[in-house]
Structures are given as C-alpha cells and as structure tokens.
Nucleic acid binder design. Structure first.
Lengths: 367, 367
DNA sequence: TTGTACGCGTTATCAG
DNA sequence: CTGATAACGCGTACAA
C-alpha cells in the first residue's frame, strides 16, 4: 500500500509537504505551484490513498457510526436501515452494521466491538426486551451519543425516535369506524413491548371519542415472539379462534402487518372474503403489505424517516462539546429526549365499507 | 478515553507491560502474577478499552470487510446481507455497509471510502448493470479480495457466487409440467441481466427434455427496472396483456417473486382463481412470498448461504499470501472463479394440478 | 519547506 | 527473570 512517504520520495519532498499539499492545508499557500503539481502528479501516478485509520487515530474521531439492529430480516429493520445509511452517506459517515439477532450476548459483544472501533455514535434499532438499564449505563459511561429507534425504553434517559403509536392507532380505528364498522376485533401486541401498550391506548382513546364500546371478547394478545415472522402464524391462529368464537365482527385491527397478514390468511381460509366479510388493518406498512391479495390497508410507520432522524440526531450530538451526561438542560427527565414521528393511514384493498347485506362474523347468531 | 498509558500510570508499570499482560503475549510469562493482577485490576477499574484504530494501524489489517449492496430495500439484499453479516460475526470481522442505491457515482464514492478505510475484503451485491470492467480494474489494482454475489459479470475475472439459475428454472418448469401444465406463459427478466438469460436457458433445456413446445406468444420480457418494486407492476401489466391475448395458458412462470406477485394480482383481478385457473410460480422466495393469498410457490435462492459463502470466500482469500493478481493457478480463465449454489423448489399454494374441468386462459378458443 | 512530536498499541531489544 | 526503552505504522500540525 502506498503511503505518504512513498509519495514524498517520488516527488523529492518531505512527507509533511505532501500532506499539506494533498489536504490543501493553510500552509499550502507557501508552496510553489510547481512543487504542488509534482506532488499531485506523483500521488496520482502511484495511486496514493490516504489511510483513514491513521487519520482517525490522529484526529481522534473515526467518522464511523454503529448501527445495531435487532434482526436484519425483520422488514421493519430494512426500512429504517435504509434511511439511516442514506443519511450517513450525506454526511460522509460510514456505518458499521451489527445484527444482534435478538440475542443478548451478541448485543454485548457487538457493542464492545463497536466501542473499541471508536464509533462516534450509535443508532440502536430495538424492538425487544433485551436492552435494559445495565446496558444503558454501560453506554452512558462510554460517553458516545446514542439514539434508540422504534421502541421506547421503559426507563427513559435515552434519546429515542419512534412513530407516534397512539396517533397511529387512533387513525386506524377512526378509519374503520368511518367505514361503518362497530364490531371490531383487535390483535394486540405482546405485553412486553411498549409499542403495544401505546397502540392500545390510542385505540381506547379513539373508541371513547367515537363512543364506541370495545368488546373485550374480541381482543386477543400476541405472545412475545422471537422473530417477526412468527407473528404471522400467531395472527393466523388467534384469528381462527376469533372466527370460531361466539362474537361476530366485521373488521380486525392487528398489532402489525405481519400479524394482519396472518389474520387475513385465517379469514380467507375460512371461506370469507376480505374486505367484504371482514376488513383487515395492519400497522407498519412493510414491503409485503401492498403485494398480497387484497393489498393490505395499514398505518404506515415512516421507517426511512425514523432512520434518518435518528442518524441526524446522533450526528448533531456528536458536534456538541461533550456535556456532562445524565444532566439535561431542560430540567425534567425525558424532556427533549423523545421524538415522535407522525404515522400515516394507507388505504388499500383490505378495508372496505361494512356490508349491510352480508353480516360479518359467522352469522351464527345475531342478525 | 482511557489509554494504555493511563492504565500503566495507575498500575505503576510501563505501558509496554500493560500491553503484554492484557494481550497475554509470550513475554507475559515473565511477569509475576501479582503484577498481572495489578494491571488487570487497573484496566478493569478504569474501563480501559483497547483502541482498535491504533491496533489496526500497527497490525496493518483492519478486521473490517466492506459490504456494497445495490439496494437495501430489495428483498433479495436483505437475505444475502443477513447471511454475510452472520458469517462475519463468526470470524470477528465487522462489516461496513454501503448502500449504492443503483447509483453509479455513489458506488464509486463508497468504494473509495471503503478502500481508504482499509477494508480487508469486499463483498459486492450487484444485480444491475453498473459494475463493469473499469471498476473491476480499479479493484484489482487495490489488491483486496472481492467477491460478487447474485449476478455474474459478463467479463468474468471476478470471483462470483450465484444461485444455479439454470437448475432453478429447470426445477420450476419441471414442477409445472408434472402438475400437467402444457400451456405455460413466461415473464422473462430484463435482457441486461445475466440471470435472466440463464433462467431462460434452463427453461429451454427442460422444455426440450420434456418434449414441451414453448409458445413464444406466451413469452414476455420485463423492461430493465431501476428498483425491485417496479417489477411488481411490470409483472401485473404484462400478465394483463397475456390474459387479454388470444393464447390461453394454465400456468405462468415469472422471472422473480416480485414479478410473480404482480402477475398474481393481474390474474386475480381478472376474476380468475390461483391456482385453479392459473398456477403461478416465482423465483427467489423473498420474505413476502409466503405471506400472500395464496402463498407463492417459488424457486428459492439460498440467500443467506449466498451471503455467507461470499464472506467465507473473501475471508479465505484474505488469508492467502497475496499472489500476483490476474494469474490464476488453474490455467483456464474463470476456472474456480464461480460458485453455483443449488436452488430449491418450494411448493406453496399458487401452483396446483391443472384443472380439466375448468379450462385455462379465457376459454375463448380451444378446448 | 522541513524536521519532529504526537495519537495509541505492539513488539523487539536491552538493562537490571 | 522482570520490566523499561524505543521504534514502528501513517498522517497531522506546529515550530523552525
């Protein structure tokens, strides 16, 4: 590999001069153009490429940011990642990617590796239960800016970017309500996830506002799942139970798209049609949502925005002169530590106006 | 940030001793346990974290590998990425992720950044047309191992890992044939993609073997597309044309899953049923394939394997003492430069035995 | 323009 | 046997 010294030798100057010229440092003004040209030519000819490792060591910053994601195969991850990587590119930062796979030891090992590599910031894409106080403490100690994406931490104290789940759920329920649905089934997310609680709260709020009574017999909870795809079969199973149950419903609102897709499968395999016999609404707007039949109506999380917002926040913090950690100017804890991005209702084919003629549910009772 | 010297000061020894002890270097044998303990304790207490930048500079290898992907949002990418990252983790290498977004300048800029960062190897996930001789020359000059994934380069000379497209296509056609289909429509991939040609060749080979005549009126070509999702609507559109055409068909084989999904939409919106009226077969087995209704039968590319195979190959090359590039021991060009992984037929709900009672196509003519 | 110290960890050499 | 000293890898920056 060609070094500065090689170029210096080739152009008959000291390596300091080469550095100065190639970087157009202030001192370059005192170097005659002829010399500059000679140096440039030599660098060009030899194919000199500055060693960023050395540069980073000298400058005390690596120009790298760590991206710690919980599961690369999760469709939510892909979207956020894309936004994050894109924003980093704009700022000439390079991302180091770590796929935790929902595995705690892996998380810790990766974290250590990233810190040793001297990443200047960390974006953590978490949807699960692993991250807790201990890790945060560890991170806080390391003094590097960190932003969580997608899930709020119960303990707080960490900058977080999320979708406004309450607003999203309200949007969704409002949509179903306006289509005329009154008997609505809900597949709630796992208890352990903060998002699940938020979405449910949004549903309750909106229901109250609409004067809609929620029938708890139509509410089921997803079990905590290790990976995104298992919620498909969970959704399918729960929906089968719902369909086999005594309470009819004309619409179903799922915790997320994967669950909704599972629910749709159950509805269709039961011989019912979507949306005619049962509307189905998801949450997330993953890549697969528009591809099925019918295409899934859903609440879109602005994944790319979540990613880029997180990156920009990290970058911003990196600029700040390191202030004492734990002490936040605003006074109140969590003040200014949370950014909520607005979700968006995406109406596709899986939700429709309630059919008066064809009663929902199995039509076994009522109607 | 705590350095070796800090630990040395705290434990009253020279920083060299600290290094020796912490790394358990050979010389550590001569250091009494008491001193070792003191050093370890100090390192622990101060939270010392070795600076990998300095280490890399010294050792002349960064322990990083570049992952250059054409489009993070492409479902094919996600799968391969996962495999690649996973394999890197096993070897304690960290991936730097670069999302090229099918943009040539971005490719070049990222490539330069990665080389300056002194990545020790490069895995390039390419499905498109940008990569050409110029870039390869540039890379060859840099002497770092590089492996292409997913698409073969026309010019050759670069190590490549791909799915055996010919075998996959044959598998697919064989499957449809055995279900009784004789009138089969094909949505071929864009001309520019090498994969497309391979898959078509596989179809021809298998057709010959089965003594099946291919009706060219049932063959359509996808236009070159900028992103994965546009092939959904392309597939949909082409299928509409096919359905409106004079030649009936009972099955359709698409270039990839996205196209197949588009085709399925077209078939369903025309009032036909899948697979009863028309079987549909995809290629890839992307995440969305099993989620629709009916779930898509497809030829699976072993994406994770492709990724990990590429990584392992790069890693392997990195071990080798750098031999003169361009000269490959096997003699013949491209000998040992290509690894083909076997695809797998995944039968789900979108393909079925041909229905004798309900003729395929629009039933307007024939039958 | 150049010499030189520096950033940080590694390792060979050397003195006690 | 114990541990310190110094040079090195590469680019940067300041004094000369």
């Amino acid at each position: 590999m060609i070094t500065l010294r090689d170029v210096a030798r080739a152009s008959q100057v000291s390596h300091a001069s080469v550095s100065i010229v190639l970087n157009n440092a202030p001192l370059a003004r005192y170097i005659p153009d002829a010399t500059k040209a000679r140096i440039l030519a030599a660098a060009q000819r030899l194919g000199y490429r500055p060693n960023q490792l050395a540069r980073s060591l000298r400058h005390q910053h690596s120009h790298m940011v760590g991206l710690l994601v919980f599961d690369l195969l999760d469709p939510f991850c892909a979207g956020v990642l894309e936004g994050a990587v894109s924003s980093l590119y704009e700022s000439s930062y390079l991302p180091i990617l770590a796929d935790v796979r929902n595995d705690r030891p892996r998380f810790e090992r990766y974290l250590e590796m990233l810190l040793q590599r001297r990443v200047e910031g960390l974006v953590v894409l978490a949807n699960w239960l692993f991250i807790d106080i201990a890790m945060i403490a560890d991170l806080a100690g390391s003094r590097i800016p960190i932003v969580l994406v997608g899930t709020r931490l119960a303990q707080g104290g960490v900058r977080t970017v999320i979708t406004d789940n309450v607003a999203g759920a309200r949007l969704g329920l409002g949509h179903l309500f306006e289509l005329g649905h009154r008997q609505i089934a809900f597949l709630r997310g796992p208890h352990a996830l903060a998002d699940a609680a938020m979405r449910w709260r949004g549903i309750q709020t909106e229901a109250r506002r609409r004067k809609l009574a929620l029938d708890m017999r139509l509410v089921k909870d997803l079990p905590a799942a290790p990976d995104a795809f298992s919620s498909f079969s969970a959704g399918q199973q729960l929906t089968r139970e719902l369909l086999a149950g005594p309470v009819p419903f004309s619409a179903l609102m799922a915790y997320d798209d994967m669950t909704a897709l599972g629910a749709m499968r159950a509805v269709i395999e039961s011989g019912r049609r979507v949306p005619d016999d049962c509307s189905i609404l998801g949450f997330d707007d993953i890549a697969a949502a528009p591809l099925g039949n019918p295409p899934l109506s859903t609440i879109r999380q602005p994944m790319a925005q979540l990613g880029s917002c997180a990156v920009e926040w990290v970058l911003e913090e990196m600029q700040q002169p390191k202030q004492s950690p734990g002490v936040h100017p605003r006074g109140k804890a969590n003040q200014g530590m949370l950014k909520r991005l607005p979700p968006e209702l995406v109406v596709r084919g899986s939700t429709g106006r309630i059919q008066i003629s064809t009663p929902p549910g199995r039509g076994r009772r009522k109607t």
